[in-house]
Every structure is written in C-alpha cells, then in structure tokens.
Design a protein around this nucleic acid. Sequence first.
DNA 1: AATATTTGTTAGATTAATCTAACTTATATA
DNA 2: TATATAAGTTAGATTAATCTAACAAATATT
Lengths: 221, 221
Amino acid sequence: MLSYTEENYLKALLKLSFQNEDKPETGTNEMAAYLGVKPATATDMLKKLKEKELVSYKKYGKILLTEMGKKSAMVILRKHRLWETFLCEKLDFSWDEVHEVAEQLEHIQSQKLVDKLEELLGFPQFDPHGDPIPKANGEMPEITRTLLSELQEGDTCTVASVKDTSAMFLQYLEKLKVRIGTRLKIKEVIDFDGSMYIAIGEGEPRSVSMKFAESLFVQKL
Amino acid sequence: MLSYTEENYLKALLKLSFQNEDKPETGTNEMAAYLGVKPATATDMLKKLKEKELVSYKKYGKILLTEMGKKSAMVILRKHRLWETFLCEKLDFSWDEVHEVAEQLEHIQSQKLVDKLEELLGFPQFDPHGDPIPKANGEMPEITRTLLSELQEGDTCTVASVKDTSAMFLQYLEKLKVRIGTRLKIKEVIDFDGSMYIAIGEGEPRSVSMKFAESLFVQKL
DNA sequence: AATATTTGTTAGATTAATCTAACTTATATA
DNA sequence: TATATAAGTTAGATTAATCTAACAAATATT
C-alpha cells in the first residue's frame, strides 16, 4: 500500500515523463520543484521508492519509473481524471475548479469506487481538459497532439485539449468561449510576434498571442 | 485547518456522545477503544484538541466537545452520510460496503463539493442506514427512535434505521430482505429469551433474536 | 478506612515526511 | 584542462501520530 505522499511522487514522475516528450527521465531538482519540496526531501523519497522497486535510479543519475511504478502512477492519473470529469459533468464545477479537489479525491482507496464512477460517467475517453483517461487495464486513448501555434493561415481545427491547465488560462478560455470541441479558423498569422487572428466558433474574429497559441492543442480538420 | 486524524477524533467524540444518550461525556479509554488506539495516544490528542478549543476537558476528567468542536464534527458527519448516500444511490454500493469508503471521502476539503453533492442527491434527509444527515446550517432532522425490542405483540411498524451498522448485521438484514421502510408486524414476543416472531413485509413470519430486536430502530404505526 | 482495580497520564522511543546547512559529484565555460 | 556553477546527497533536526512501560489518580470492594 502506498502512502498519500508516495502516490504524489509517482504521479509527478509520470506527468514529468509526459512533459519531457522524447526521454521520460527526470532529475531530482525538477521533481522537487514540481512538487514544491526541497531537493533533499525528494532524494529521501527516491530512496524509498527505489526500495519498493517503483523507480529505477542510482546516485546522481536520472530517475525513471519502473513498469510497476508506471502502472501505479497510471491508476492515480486515471482516478484523478475520472474525478475531474465527475466534478464537471455531475456537480457543475467549472474546469478551473476541478483540479484542487481531484488532487484529494485521487487518493481514495477503492477499486470498486473508480470502476463504478467510470460507469456512471459513461466510460469517458477524455477529461474536462481534453486529456485522455487511462482505462482500467492501463491503456491510454492515443491521440496526436498538435499545437494551435503549428497551424497555418486558412487552417481550420477543433480544440482538443489544453496544454496549460492553470486557473488563469482556463478562466481566460472561459471568457473567450473556447471549450473542448470549439471550432477555430486561422484568419491570419503575424510573423512578427507569432500572434494569430482567429475566428472562435461563430463569434467575431480576434487576436490571440503566441503564448496562447502554444498553450492549446487542436485537431486539424 | 484540521488534520485527518483530528477530524477522526472529533467525529468519534460526536458519535460517542450520541451513544451515551443522556450525558454526552466520554472517557479517554472509551474514546481510544473506539478509535483503535492506545489511551496514551488519546491523551496526547486531547491536549491538542483542547489547545484548539475544540474539546473542554481537564486532567482525569471527562471529555466534552465545545460548541466549535461539535460544529466541526457535525460537518464531518454530514459529509460522511452524504457520501454514503451517494455511493448507494449513484454507484450501486450495498449498505455494508459504503462505510469504509465514506470514512475516506469525509475528509475531502471542499465546501462546494459537499453542497453540490447534496443537491445532486436531492437534499436527502437520511442516509442508507436511516441515520439523519445534518444540514449545511448544522441542523439535524430530529426523529424519535424506538427499538424493535420495545414493541408489543400485535404492533406494526416500519424499519427506520439500524443501530448496529456492522457489515455482519447489514448482510443478515439483506438476507432477510429487511430494508429501511420495510413493514414489520410483531406476531409474538417470547418472554423467555426476548426473541420475537415477526412478519417481514409480505414474507412468511420468522423468529429473530433479542439481539436482533435491539439493533433495529423502527417507526411505530 | 485500607486496599485493589480501573482509568488516565507521563516519559521516552519510533516512523514518515519534511526542513536547513554543509558537502559531493557532474556539467558547462573560459 | 581548470575552475565555476548547477545538480544532487548526507547529516542532523523537527513535527505529527503513534507506541510501550511506568506511574498517578479516581473509584470500587472488602
């Protein structure tokens, strides 16, 4: 049985491995920063996780989840994303409110609870941020993720998921009426600063920054 | 902010105060036994809770929740019973499975979560065991609780709630098809051992022990 | 009232998760 | 390559929650 804290470290390592695209390794400091603890603390936990064969790692080396560690982390991620979906769909939470509560709910220990929750929600493939929800068997709905910033003038797409899940960005999206599935059309790309002039759904076209365009994953049509 | 453990102590004190009918005081050993810890541990926690003005208590004296302590404990009980209701109504848990999971869920910190959950469930007054669910303002649906064992031959009643919530008893009730609301008719009371011969719903009459009759609260008709 | 039993407290130790400060190893740069 | 900087570890301390063993107070029994 994993402690609350151990689970958080595993989940952090999994998330960081997604972020570090090609190579899924992570450093001690990176992990500590992500979790908001000191590197010394991370080192201690690493020893414990290594002891339990959840990470493979040697002194001064990079950190990698073992198969077992990855499996455990996937279960936690699955729970997190299912709970986020529940909060949005069933309890009318807005997508910038769900994370904090799901961080707590993901640690509830009950196989049956997770599976029944998934059933109640109708076996959703994606969470409210558009991120894929791991299945009970560990499988992950695969998706090609294209950043809005990679598109050209004239391209059309739908919003697939958010790269940046900060409350600030999510609230901005809310204001722009941008949701998962919203249709976007690129009217113009400004080379000078990477900003874009886009039509959002049926609304009036407007300009968005490069930072914005690099924070949104889309599905090209 | 209360720790997970502190919350458990407060809830235990509240529950014990219900049990001790007339006087809501509790002893150190009683509390320790209820929580499955040693008396020494309970003493330590008591000091902490006293420091926080959640219990009033002096060395070698009895323990009593302060107004603040009672309020906090009621919130936890409210969460516990709402989650139990959720598990039964929405996720098809049986009533002997809900307790363990609700013990974890009751510690999730989010005012909005609780209130929205209550709304989703349609503002239920009672949980799956027939126990009253405290309202957001701290009010508790008042009920007169009569034990089945207090009834006489010829009396009719409906099952209001269970006094004993052990999985063993709940599973036995399941087997007998006794649920909250089930109609019972007392055919005969055996003075010798306090057992009763009763009709359960539309079924064939059968005999139940005194222990059984003392574990079930009913509403006399 | 004297003593035995029950009840509750204290002192000292343990474990998990964290910290700071000092140290070591690895990497980058001049 | 030598050295400066970044990254990572170790040692020792702290806090919360728990324990055991020894002690103290309150209550019950003769």
